[in-house]
């Protein structure tokens, strides 16, 4: 407890860093996901294949390898990335690979007749995407995206491995410092506290995701008495 009070400013800095990392990643991952995910639903076959390769590549390579790759390889091309930037890039690429599948699934869950009627009414493709399919797809996209955010928050802990002083790294430093300076090892308590903090943050987010899902489904059920239950996308694994 004493340890906590003494290190409070430091811990708060770490939490802020984790939050910053998560938000930056979410921002970039969302942009890329929506861009590429939408492109993958268009009629161009080669584009679909290209996006598929991107998704498979970055989902199949372990996230850690991905982050180390950005961190170690970018400097070779004359790109001096700070650890923060390297982790943001690595996580965004991975997050967007998962996000693309969510967005694509969302657009695919919009019934065919919606697209056809919109086209029959003379709407242009971009108008269909923006005004007809988009809002409906968003209902299917939002809940899993909250789930993705939970995973991103968890994944920011990987920043510790390349030297970003985020929450997990702060815990690590406190353990080391106490062991060196005071001669006792608080690893058990500190890591338990770290786990608990992540648990509180992430389970709040998960809870929000579930609430959102129920909420959106209820709205849809009211609009259409016999709602077609869309296939639930399986929970993505980190």
């Amino acid at each position: 407890m004493d340890l906590l009070i003494r290190n409070l400013p430091f811990i708060l800095q770490g939490l802020a860093m984790t939050l910053g990392l998560a938000l930056a990643t979410l921002f970039f991952a969302t942009i890329v996901s929506f861009l590429l995910g939408t492109l993958a639903t268009l009629r161009f076959g080669w584009l679909r294949v290209a996006v598929k390769v991107y998704v498979e590549l970055f989902r199949d390579i372990p996230l850690i390898v991905n982050i180390f790759f950005v961190f170690f390889v970018a400097p070779l091309f004359g790109l001096e990335l700070s650890p923060f930037a390297a982790v943001t890039v690595g996580l965004s690429v991975w997050g967007s690979a998962n996000g693309i599948e969510i967005v694509r699934g969302g657009f695919n869950s919009v019934p065919r007749h919606q697209w056809q009627s919109a086209a029959a009414l003379g709407l242009k493709t971009w108008e269909i995407y923006l005004f007809i399919a988009g809002p409906q797809a968003l209902r299917a996209i939002l809940p899993p995206f909250v789930g993705l955010l939970t995973l991103l928050v968890q994944a920011t802990s990987l920043g510790a491995l390349v030297g970003v002083n985020e929450f997990f790294k702060v815990g690590q430093i406190i353990v080391e410092r106490t062991t060196m300076m005071e001669g006792w090892n608080p690893a058990f308590t500190v890591y338990a506290a770290v786990l608990l903090t992540y648990f509180v943050i992430c389970s709040t987010l998960s809870w929000f995701g579930r609430w959102l899902e129920r909420r959106l489904r209820r709205d849809r059920a009211q609009a259409r008495p016999k709602a077609i239950s869309a296939a639930e996308p399986a929970a993505q694994l980190p």
Partner: peptide, 8 residues
């Protein structure tokens, strides 16, 4: 599910 693997 709600804690990072690295912390575990």
């Amino acid at each position: 599910r709600n804690t990072p693997l690295l912390a575990q």
